[in-house]
Amino acid sequence: MPHVTVVHGSGENPVYQVGGRSFVFFRNPRPDAVDPGTGERYPDVIVFWVESEADKQALVQDGTSPFFTTAHFDGHPSVLVRACRLGELTRGELAEVVQDAWLSRASKRRAAAWLSSRSAP
């Protein structure tokens, strides 16, 4: 994706940004994302921005989907996924989630230019 920079957040986890705005980041283990059986905090949660609440719900409403959310993210335009479950997605599905995250945070000008370049012959 164009204009992407990587900064490091707390715990030195990578935070992917476009125009200084995060669109994907790796979380530190937090008390809101835990294994329901053991209570252990998930060590591998990745956050992807989404365009809207409808987009978020489309990803998290299916209980078999690897995407989820927590009360901490209520009202926040993002979904969570554990890195250990990324293999449940096809490469194309994962690429679409990353691209949609980038588009949701890129400036209108950058988004339009990138979309235009992809449709050009």
Rank of each mutant, 00 (worst) to 15 (best):
S117G: 15
Q61I: 11
A113D: 13
Q57V: 02
A101E: 00
E40V: 01
G19P: 06
Y16I: 07
P36E: 06
N28E: 09
I46V: 01
M1D: 14
G63D: 14
W114L: 15
G9M: 12
T69M: 00
G9L: 13
E40D: 09
G11L: 09
S78N: 01
V24L: 05
E96M: 07
R91F: 06
A71D: 03
G75C: 11
P36C: 01
H76T: 10
K108F: 12
S52R: 02
L103T: 07
H8M: 15
Q61S: 15
A106G: 02
R85W: 09
D100H: 10
P36S: 00
A83E: 10
S104E: 06
E88R: 11
S116E: 15
P66G: 10
Y42D: 04
P77K: 11
S65V: 10
T90C: 02
M1W: 13
K56M: 02
P2V: 14
Y42A: 05
P36L: 01
P29E: 01
F23V: 03
L59Q: 10
I46R: 01
V97M: 05
P14V: 05
P2T: 14
V60Y: 06
P43F: 05
Q99P: 04
L103W: 02
L94F: 03
A95K: 12
A54Y: 04
E40F: 07
T70C: 03
G20C: 02
L80A: 07
S65D: 10
G63P: 13
L80K: 01
H8W: 15
R85E: 05
V97K: 03
V47Y: 04
A112R: 12
D62H: 12
L115C: 13
K56H: 00
A33V: 04
D55G: 07
P31D: 01
P31T: 06
R109P: 12
W49D: 03
Q17T: 11
V98I: 07
G39H: 07
P2A: 14
T5I: 08
E93P: 11
V24W: 00
D32V: 04
H3N: 11
G39C: 04
F48G: 04
V79S: 00
V24G: 08
E40I: 06
G92M: 08
M1V: 14
A83S: 12
S116R: 15
S65A: 14
F48I: 04
A111E: 09
L103K: 08
